[in-house]
Amino acid sequence: MSVDTKTVARIAHLARLKVPEDRLEPLAGELNQLLAWVEQLSEVNTDNVPPLTSVVHARLPRRDDVVTDGDRQADVLANAPDAQNGFFAVPKVIE
């Protein structure tokens, strides 16, 4: 499996990263190098091996379904680059 500049551009868009045109080629090279390196895992027989999703052998804890926190609008907005009238402000999305 090999990555071309078109794939890098697509992945960058999926990841919402602006990648300048002149970086696509070098990035494709770097990603291919990494993918070639991890390709070694194909040597490992993983038939009937379950994927490890958690190293913790414990059931997820449960709690009562009640509100435990809230009324923190000012805290939530305190770090916003742009907040207006108690909301996060973003560029216009609806014409």
Partner: peptide, 15 residues
């Protein structure tokens, strides 16, 4: 499947 799931399976073997 080819990358992430495979890696999670090898992770089981390492553990």
């Amino acid at each position: 499947d080819a990358y992430y799931l495979k890696a999670q399976k090898v992770r089981t073997l390492i553990a």
